[in-house]
Design a protein around this nucleic acid. Structure first.
Lengths: 232, 232
DNA sequence: CGCCTACTTGAAGAGGTTCAAGAACCGTGG
DNA sequence: CCACGGTTCTTGAACCTCTTCAAGTAGGCG
């Protein structure tokens, strides 16, 4: 895969609507390409706001508090557009969860270039509102849910995003580690592990390998997720 | 104050850039006006995504989990534009914290009308990205901070938004109750109260009345907020 | 096949919640 | 202007969930 192909994928994914050839050329010039593997240093620095397109693979957006505490603010997957803010009260970084390819733009430049392209900026706005809705869901999870509800919510939402239905349930490949899950759910790695064991013991899922999850009872998980619909 | 004045304030605040007369007329036709007081029933229903402009006063955006648990997702003040999502896994509502005036639009209609107005949609996008950044800060607070850090973070951010410098420090009028603060910070009302007492005992602030806060040592509060800058 | 890292499990401890009571704010009415 | 009453806030003590610290197990890559 070449970087030109990567830009094409970006263009057809996000910029699918009309775009002038001039804008496309300028955007392509402003783009910075990167590919990274899990364990690599964070991809995006934090001097300026960035807009990053995930061409393939998956990433985590991490916020850093004092004392080395980390909060995973979002997991993002191929095709997603991510806003990575510059450091203010907290520092942010974007790290690869697996082999992935990214295109990044300085946010100010990006907006300047696409603002005349009405369909595109609306598309970007919609991405941003989806990210906002996801982040609010995360706020509920972090603020008002028990450890078990957090795990169940997480698994259900991952199943909705990228689960593949199989005969016995829904299969999931989760590229993040238990530690990443903990940092995303506001829990320790031990609590994540314990709650997973409990869900396993309840027959709701099995884990054929470390990154593979087979959800046997999605309704049961939903019931444990503390969603409003499952409420009495 | 008439509702026409209210729309004018919206137009000059958010739509300050060029807008055709036709679009303005259509927007005005799509607008639904509401005024509400604290304690009133939630203002915005949850059948469809809404875009709400806060003309005056202040509101809380609340997400509802099962078992009656509530998470305040954001406090918003005069001049803010708020995206209120329709119910999905959780239900959302917008409630007045004090006497306030609002304009709401169905989100789909709003976007349809402003998408041709390039300056405006960019402005809306920027609002959305600010909301996203705020929500991410909240995720850090809820996921990785102690009760004391949460309170300190909250007070510092409120001071940045609407504090008035006085000779002894920074004065704050907070329209929300302790209960709202707790629901925003993922704490109980008792914990909020206890941590406030501790901050008082440390000489960082005094509370001349229930809604009035005098922050005596903003740097001291910042140091307790768990921000990256205050880190060792 | 073996080692290293990631995950799991166990037991003690801390921070926050819950339940319960008391104090202070503040609008109301005298 | 002050007394009153209701609500909101504060404080206290027991409990519980999750964390911390520690050890053991199992993937999975060489």
């Amino acid at each position: 895969m070449t970087f030109t192909n990567l830009f094409d994928r970006f263009a057809s994914g996000i910029l699918s609507l009309s775009m002038t050839e001039a804008t496309r050329t300028k955007l392509e010039a402003a783009a910075r390409y990167a590919s990274a593997l899990s364990g690599d240093a964070p991809i995006v620095g934090n001097d300026k706001d960035q807009i990053v397109f995930v061409g393939s693979g998956s990433v985590k957006l991490v916020a850093h508090a004092s004392a080395g505490r980390e909060q995973v603010v979002a997991f993002q997957f191929a095709g997603d557009l991510v806003s990575v803010p510059a450091t203010r009260a907290h520092a942010y970084s974007l790290s690869a969860l697996d082999d992935c390819e990214l295109i990044s733009f300085p946010a100010d430049e990006f907006f300047k270039l696409v603002q005349q392209e009405e369909g595109i900026i609306l598309e970007v706005l919609k991405c941003s509102l989806v990210a906002l809705a996801n982040c609010r869901e995360k706020a509920i999870t972090l603020g008002r849910k028990t450890a078990q509800e957090r795990l169940a919510s997480f698994l259900v939402s991952m199943a909705e995003r990228g689960g593949t239905p199989v005969d016995r349930g829904v299969e999931l490949h989760l590229p993040m580690s238990r530690s990443d899950m903990g940092d995303s759910l506001g829990l320790t790695i031990e609590t994540v592990s314990r709650q997973l064991s409990e869900l396993r013991a309840s027959g709701l899922l099995i884990t054929p390998s470390r990154s593979k999850f087979l959800l046997l009872d999605l309704a049961g998980l939903q019931a444990r997720a503390g969603h409003i619909r499952a409420a009495a």
